[in-house]
């Protein structure tokens, strides 16, 4: 087949040029659209502060001596990294911030397979007190900071320690019973708002 004498091929070429021109126009328009989208995004990022401060949100739900440590250790360390940190305390986690109860956090001897005694023995009266006494002794011997020191340090370094209002009411606590510097009057929406923008979110 000889193409040079085929009139249909000629016309196909001509319409091909038209199609190319049209798609170049289309691409130009798309590039323009992307450019303006990019510049919108840039200004949105700038309006956001444009800084690279990392954020961490921890939800603290437990009020035993051992479970009070991880949120506070991570929170104070993250603050030392210059991160923006919120710890949202709810249910038994509130005890960590409670003026009186935070001084009496206990370790449970029951239901912990790492305890060097069977549950039947661990459930005897005062076994929680004994386990707590032993743990506190180990903490002191090891030079581990106390819960009290960690809370003070965290607050000093700008960590936002929040006490969930719904559970304050549920547990019959009063806002005044919490340590100075603790944020009260906050709920799930406040916690979520910070979590949505956080780089690290933890549930303890």
């Amino acid at each position: 087949m000889s193409a040079d004498t085929d009139p249909t091929a000629e016309s196909a070429n001509a319409s091909g040029d038209v199609a190319d021109a049209a798609s170049v126009e289309e691409l130009r328009a798309q590039v323009e659209a992307l450019r303006s989208e990019l510049s919108d995004l840039r200004s949105a990022v700038d309006a956001d502060g444009g800084d690279d401060t990392r954020r961490m949100t921890i939800i603290a739900t437990k009020g035993t001596l051992d479970m009070a440590y991880p949120p506070l250790i991570l929170a104070s360390t993250a603050a030392a990294f210059g991160w923006d940190v919120v710890v949202f305390h709810t249910f038994w986690g509130l005890d960590i911030l409670h003026e009186e109860r935070s001084k009496k956090l206990k370790l449970s001897a029951v239901g912990n397979p790492s305890m060097p005694m069977p549950n039947a023995v661990a459930s005897l009266p005062f076994m929680d007190d004994a386990a707590t006494w032993y743990m506190n002794k180990k903490i002191a011997d090891n030079g581990t900071a106390t819960i009290d020191e960690l809370i003070e340090t965290s607050l000093d370094m700008g960590v936002d320690l929040q006490a969930c209002q719904m559970t304050i009411d549920l547990m019959d606590y009063d806002e005044d019973e919490f340590r100075d510097g603790v944020t009260v009057g906050v709920g799930a929406a406040t916690a979520l708002q910070h979590m949505a923008d956080a780089d690290v979110q933890l549930f303890v």
Partner: peptide, 14 residues
């Protein structure tokens, strides 16, 4: 001296 995690880092920052 005598302090353990996280205090060395935290006090360094302070």
């Amino acid at each position: 001296k005598g302090l353990s995690c996280p205090m060395p880092v935290v006090q360094t920052k302070q």
